[in-house]
Design a binder for these strands. Structure first.
Length: 819
RNA sequence: GCCGAAGUGGCGGAACAGGCAGACGCGCACGACUCAAAAUCGUGUUCCGUGAGGAGUGUGGGUUCGAUUCCCACCUUCGGCACCA
């Protein structure tokens, strides 16, 4: 062996060879096995844009490594992969290149599947699911029916962005610029009302605020909690002078006596009846301007309040006061009731509005310690709580009872009650697009809205569509597709031509993975019972408020219908950060800072790319890509190659001390790496492996090669390396004569005795500053440590003859002498 | 404005019960090998100071024998929400 040169490390040859072998032997096929504990590791599925991005690798490689780690720890691990394959880019490609979205999508999937395979991940490809395949979206439609039949889906008018020139609806990403113009023709976009389908996510708002048993980052829970936006208060019913009910929501029922005017959203349905003839023109003009205004423009107005008096009045139910009703765009139709009682003395926005339009400001709350001042004297609203004043029979009520007393009074008068309001809105699922799952609804002249019966699903997308540059959905333009027969009366019916939001598809893909070919339901219950819930879910934080809320809603709704079980679909969540370009900007083709994983794999091999992605940044933080750093990781793996295959000098001549140090480092490293895998701290896994290698190099130079301790170290090293760099670990495992496969090996056991330190370096401090170090037995007594410290020349020098005031001993660490 | 995360060498980062700041790697410098270069190997590398030593984890305070770590105030960067009644 000494004379045979070490073969070169050639990842380009090794990696495809093992990938083929793994596939051939079904190494990563996960099947139900009641004898072993299961672990469902899920990573967010990619959109098939065409090329695998370095960001995909960054998200998936550590997820794969951890799934492999769990596998070696004895879990039966399911780690599937698929494609979120519906969506707008395919349609844009269709128009631009005259290629059918299906062709475009499936061609991209083929390429990305190849790229994913080059990662060497343990995906069980038998379980691949593609959301745009009819056998998938059949069940997406089936779920829609379930929601419809259980009162969770409903239709109502709702505004969409509309290009009056193209005569088409636009998705959010098709509206460009500050002036919000159409991406295609540049015409300013307007809002248009259409009948659209919604899911009742708000029914689950309260439950979604609970995170029972969830090991999710605090950050994500905070994002979701803020997004759901719970406010506690009361509904109060005012009346217009004509007797119409005018309901408001308020978080401050205790300020009700300070309501000196009301404000309605410009679109509020009562505006017309409230408006007096002399105000009609001004009101109409304001409404028109507001309807053209976009959210962006509303923000750009920089809080300068605008509004118009309707001429109408309402009656405050608690004091019978007649107060003017205004309209203003700072009141949103989409939140609360679209109307507010304005309490300028205690609300900043109402205060600004009152000052601008000369409306009355009446303080009704006196915070403790504040002097009582008149509304005219106020320079700003006082939002604090305190004693009620100027509030009729409730004047003098202390702040901590105010809320309760007002609610009681309102209930007695039948004028209101305690209420909770949420920022979360129902989920609008209608998309005026072709490339999505058709909403399985028929409109019959006799029977009205009729769902397509489950046995007629899927409602297939027609293949023979024309891609006209009108922007209108081809489903609307198709000559025959929309004509159907009513399943109830047999008469003619029209199909819904809208398709579903792709978030609908991705809300249940983790269930489809369980049995992607199952045709008796969305998933095989046997598989569900064994694998669900998802144990570990990894993906980007950007999905905190959309996908992750939708999928939780979906699970809970299905649970109540009886389709799923348990409170939550995904028990543990971990988010990776983002890889930026070398210029610290977001990677994009136009900036030219995109890092292509294919090129890196060609140059370095997948194992190096995997290891570098785990090493170069904290996984949850992300960082700008740094191309020069990868050489260090490549060097490390080449050294692993030689350290395993090359014979060391003077084999077997190592001292006992060398052996002990080697074994200690090995088992300490094993402990540390095990913990880091558990806690998703991937960068320190690699650095610990590098440190251990440095120690092994030293031990080899000192003659440890060929000893049992050396062989133990090499064996354990390859097993620890296997999740990170699966190909080289497999190759070296075979070359040292171990049986296939390293990936079926158990995770190494820690030898606590070997890891134990018998000698420690005691740090000696004087007044907190390090002055000396002392090697002492690990089990040294406190007194022994202290006297050893005081005997040190360096300590004596810094004591300068003074008597120590205090001597502190931290076991196993240091002695601090205080003078 | 509100909510959240983060600020450590030239760079990415480590320090996992409050106890050696800078592990590991990049880069750089010097050396070995080489006719030479690459690759590889070795040594060094927070700053100031020739040195003893001193300073040092965004800034300012505090608690403590001792603070990157805990508390208070502030600054900067990033992310989310944003007239939410």
């Amino acid at each position: 062996m000494a004379n045979t040169p070490t073969p070169a490390y050639t990842p380009a040859e090794i990696e495809p060879r093992w990938q083929a072998k793994w596939q051939e032997t079904g190494l990563y096929e996960s099947n139900i096995d009641p004898k072993r504990p299961k672990h469902y590791a899920l990573t967010m599925l990619p959109y098939p844009s065409g090329d695998l991005h370095i960001g995909h690798w960054y998200a998936m490689t550590p997820s794969d490594a951890r799934a492999r780690f769990m596998r070696m720890r004895g879990y039966n691990v399911l780690f599937p992969m698929g494609f979120d394959a519906f969506g707008l880019p395919a349609e844009n490609a269709a128009i631009k290149n005259n290629i059918h979205p299906m062709q475009w999508t499936f061609r991209n999937i083929d390429n990305m599947r190849r790229q994913l395979k080059s990662m060497g991940a343990m995906f069980d490809w038998r379980r691949e699911a593609v959301s745009a395949a009819p056998e998938y979206y059949r069940w997406t439609q089936w779920f829609f029916n379930q929601f419809y039949n259980n009162g969770l889906a409903y239709r109502k008018m709702s505004p969409v962005d509309w290009c009056p020139n193209c005569n088409t609806t636009l998705a959010r990403e098709q509206v460009w610029g500050e002036d919000r113009h159409c991406e295609r023709c540049g015409t300013p976009v307007i809002k248009k009302n259409l009948e659209q389908w919604f899911f009742r996510t708000t029914k689950y708002a309260e439950e979604l605020l609970q995170y029972p048993g969830l090991d999710w980052p605090e950050r994500v829970r905070t994002l979701q909690t803020n997004w759901i936006g719970k406010s506690v208060g009361a509904h109060v019913t005012f009346h217009t002078e004509h007797g119409a009910e005018l309901r408001v929501f308020t978080t401050r029922p205790d300020t009700l006596w300070g309501a000196t005017f009301m404000v309605l959203a410009p679109e509020h349905p009562l505006v017309d009846s409230l408006t007096t003839p002399d105000q009609a023109e001004a009101v109409r003009a304001y409404q028109q301007q507001a309807s053209r205004q976009t959210d962006v423009e509303r923000e750009a107005t920089n809080k300068e309040k605008t509004g118009v008096f309707t001429g109408g009045y309402a009656i405050n139910p608690v004091n019978e006061q007649r107060i003017p009703v205004w309209i203003a765009d700072y009141v949103l139709m989409t939140y609360g009731t679209g109307a507010i009682m304005a309490v300028p003395a205690h609300d900043e926005r109402d205060f600004d509005f009152a000052r601008k339009f000369g409306l009355e400001i009446r303080p009704v709350i006196l915070p403790e310690g504040d002097p009582e001042i008149s509304g005219a004297e106020m320079t700003a609203a006082v939002p604090a709580h305190g004693m009620m004043i100027n509030s009729g029979e409730l004047s003098g009520t202390p702040g901590d009872q105010a809320y309760e007393k007002v609610i009681t009074l309102l209930e007695k008068k039948g004028a209101g009650h305690a209420a909770v309001n949420y920022r979360l809105r129902d989920w609008l699922i209608s998309r005026q697009r072709y490339w999505g799952a058709p909403i399985p609804i028929l409109y019959c002249q006799n029977c009205g809205v009729v769902p397509v019966p489950d046995e007629q699903l899927p409602v297939l997308l027609p293949d023979d569509v024309e891609w006209l540059p009108t922007g209108e959905s081809p489903l609307k333009l198709h000559p025959t597709w929309r004509h159907a027969t009513c399943p109830q009366c047999g008469g003619p019916a029209e199909r819904e031509t809208d398709t579903m939001d792709t978030f609908m598809c991705s809300s249940w893909y983790h269930l489809r993975y369980l049995s992607p070919k199952y045709d008796q339901g969305p998933f095989d219950p046997k598989e569900y019972d064994y694998w669900m819930p998802v144990d570990t879910y990894t993906g980007g934080i950007e999905h905190a408020n959309m996908h992750l809320i939708y999928t939780r809603f979906f699970h809970k709704a299905c649970r109540d219908i009886g389709i799923t079980e348990g409170p939550e679909p995904m028990m543990q969540l971990r988010n990776q950060g983002m890889v930026l370009g070398e210029d610290s900007e977001k990677m994009s083709k136009s900036r030219g800072n995109v890092v292509a994983p294919d090129n890196l794999v060609r140059q370095y091999g997948a194992d190096t790319v995997r290891a570098y992605l785990m090493f170069f940044a904290r996984w949850d933080m992300g960082a700008p890509w740094n191309n020069s750093g990868i050489d260090g990781t490549a060097r490390w793996l080449r050294r692993v190659w030689t350290i395993v295959l090359e014979k060391g000098e003077r084999p077997g001549t190592a001292s006992e001390e060398t052996i002990r140090v080697l074994r200690r480092k090995l088992h300490q490293s094993l402990k540390s790496i095990t913990r880091d895998f558990e806690t998703f701290e991937f960068n320190t896994i690699i650095s610990t492996l590098m440190e251990l290698q440095n120690e092994m190099l030293k031990a080899r130079a000192a003659g440890a090669w060929g000893t049992p301790a050396w062989n133990e170290a090499v064996n354990a090293y390859l097993r620890m390396l296997a999740p990170v760099a699966p190909h080289i670990a497999e190759e070296l495992w075979a070359r040292i004569g171990q049986p296939y496969s390293v990936h079926n090996q158990p995770w190494p056991e820690v030898d606590e005795a070997a890891a134990k330190v018998d000698e420690i370096t005691l740090v000696l401090q004087v007044n907190g500053k390090v002055r000396d170090r002392l090697v002492v037995p690990a089990d040294i007594s406190a007194d022994g440590a202290k006297s050893a410290a005081l005997a040190s020349d360096a300590v004596q020098k810094f004591l300068e003859g003074k008597q120590p005031r205090q001597v502190i001993y931290v076991p196993g660490k240091l002695v601090n002498v205080v003078v």
